[in-house]
């Protein structure tokens, strides 16, 4: 069934998943860089956002930002 494994066949199904992950990473990066203060060093958050797949941006959104105001 999967003998002739074809990457082009998978791509239309995987592409939206990758796109959404990319969008999340970009939003988190922009917010992290624009934030005046983050909880913990900023470079650490950038690394987490970039390299921890999916969980990285989410943890930044939830825990990374200090309540400014």
């Amino acid at each position: 069934m999967y003998d002739n494994f074809d990457f082009g066949q998978i791509l239309p199904i995987i592409a939206p998943i990758l796109t959404i992950q990319l969008v999340l990473v970009i939003i988190a990066l922009v917010m992290c860089i624009k934030a005046e203060q983050t909880r913990g060093p900023k470079w650490m958050w950038v690394l987490i956002i970039l390299f921890v797949n999916l969980i990285g941006p989410i943890t930044f959104f939830i825990f990374g930002r200090r309540n400014e105001r």
Partner: peptide, 15 residues
Amino acid sequence: LKLLWVPLVFVLLGV
């Protein structure tokens, strides 16, 4: 941006 990223996470989970 909660109204943006939380739905995106759910879409990702759902897909």
